[in-house]
Computed example of a mutant assay.
Amino acid sequence: MAIPDYQTLMLPVLKMAADGKEHKFSQSVEALADEFNLTAEERNEFLPSGSQAVFNNRVGWARSYLKQAGLLASPKRGFFTITPRGTELLAKNPTKIDIALLEHYPEFIEFKNRKKDKSDNGPLVESSTNGESNLTPEDALASAYKKLRLDLELEILNAVKETSPSFFERLVVDLLVKMGYGGNRQDAGKALGKSGDGGIDGIINEDRLGLDIIYIQAKRWEGVVGRPEIQKFAGALQGQRARKGVFITTSSFTKEAKEYASLIETKIILIDGEHLSRLMVEHNVGVSTVGQYEVKKLDSDYFDNE
């Protein structure tokens, strides 16, 4: 199943505390993950910042909002327990707890208003009528980041498709050097575009010492690359007694081409247009940074020394 949003988690979190005991947050996260039958992949999915697991973050926000409404309390750091108000709410057997329900408590309204006053862009806690109400602040940032990233990758790919073949080869050199191949830019530039030997556009060192060589095919194509082209490249590699090759294109590969590349003994990596644009963004080729935002959280270790 998909990772539940923080509002879906509010009722399970409150029910977990219904026994009146103190519950350790980290243990509660694991118990809730089991309750929702999350896979290992879902449990380990991180925010784009890499700072925290998505599920942990959403459980944290569910707990935080329940506390702001006076339904939970924190007797000590890292623990939470139910309050009489929380017990009273559970006695009514609610089918769900969400922002709309929390807005019935004056403490939560006051919390919302404080956040709204401190933010030029509106409240951090979304209104219950807002279509984005299931997003935590980190979720909203992640969603915006993903959209910006996808839009940028598409823009890059369209720009690459408009370049000349020679420029595309230079672009490939820049990317491979940024990824750690080929030594320096000058050495790599000499290597690519010099061979032209039957299906091979160039060669580049795998490492700075030149312990192994990678053969490259770089094609700025519009059509889909099929198995025959990969077979031709593989034959050229065999003719050079080469063990490794990279086929880079601005288009895509057929299923048969991918299957063939995965079955042959020679290692051939296929990089299509979408993959190419992702790598360019990751390694800062053809892009520039216009702004940076740091997302910070409480350093609990610092306060342990108090």
Results as ranks from 00 to 15, higher is better:
213 I>E: 11
41 E>M: 05
114 R>H: 08
199 G>D: 04
5 D>F: 01
12 P>W: 05
128 S>M: 02
248 I>C: 05
189 G>M: 12
279 L>Q: 09
279 L>K: 10
255 K>Y: 14
36 F>D: 01
265 E>F: 13
143 S>Y: 10
99 I>Q: 05
194 K>W: 03
153 E>I: 03
53 A>H: 14
231 Q>W: 09
181 Y>Q: 04
23 H>Y: 04
253 F>P: 00
201 D>K: 00
306 E>N: 02
90 L>A: 05
257 A>I: 03
21 K>R: 10
1 M>S: 13
253 F>L: 04
174 D>I: 05
166 S>C: 00
275 H>N: 15
208 R>C: 02
237 L>Y: 08
168 F>I: 08
302 Y>R: 07
268 I>S: 13
192 L>N: 13
113 N>R: 07
67 K>I: 05
168 F>D: 06
181 Y>I: 00
295 V>L: 08
17 A>Q: 07
140 A>Q: 10
197 D>E: 12
106 P>T: 14
141 L>K: 06
68 Q>I: 06
183 G>N: 04
77 R>P: 00
104 H>S: 15
174 D>P: 05
181 Y>P: 00
48 P>A: 06
59 V>R: 02
51 S>L: 11
15 K>I: 10
121 N>E: 15
159 A>W: 12
94 P>V: 03
278 R>H: 14
195 S>Q: 13
231 Q>Y: 08
146 K>C: 02
302 Y>T: 06
225 V>F: 04
227 R>V: 09
18 A>G: 07
126 E>I: 01
129 T>Y: 11
98 D>G: 10
1 M>H: 15
240 Q>F: 15
72 L>R: 03
129 T>P: 11
172 V>A: 08
41 E>F: 05
112 K>P: 01
187 D>Q: 12
168 F>A: 07
73 A>W: 09
212 D>P: 00
93 N>F: 09
296 K>P: 02
46 F>W: 02
64 S>H: 13
23 H>S: 05
154 L>M: 15
229 E>A: 04
198 G>A: 07
259 E>M: 10
163 T>P: 02
33 A>F: 06
207 D>I: 00
93 N>C: 08
179 M>Q: 11
62 A>D: 03
1 M>P: 04
242 A>W: 06
221 W>T: 12
107 E>I: 04
243 R>C: 02
15 K>E: 14
270 L>W: 07
287 V>M: 05
39 T>G: 09
164 S>N: 10
284 N>M: 10
38 L>T: 03
49 S>H: 00
50 G>D: 01
16 M>S: 15
156 I>P: 09
156 I>N: 12
121 N>V: 12
269 I>H: 11
184 N>D: 14
218 A>I: 02
144 A>L: 09
44 N>D: 08
61 W>D: 04
151 D>E: 14
53 A>R: 15
150 L>N: 14
221 W>G: 04
108 F>A: 01
273 G>L: 10
303 F>W: 13
63 R>H: 08
47 L>G: 03
2 A>F: 02
178 K>E: 11
185 R>H: 01
156 I>Q: 12
81 T>I: 07
2 A>L: 00
214 I>W: 01
157 L>G: 09
95 T>P: 15
296 K>H: 06
114 R>S: 12
133 S>Q: 12
15 K>P: 02
302 Y>D: 07
110 E>N: 10
87 T>D: 14
234 A>D: 08
185 R>G: 00
8 T>Y: 06
211 L>Q: 08
87 T>K: 15
282 E>N: 05
83 T>I: 11
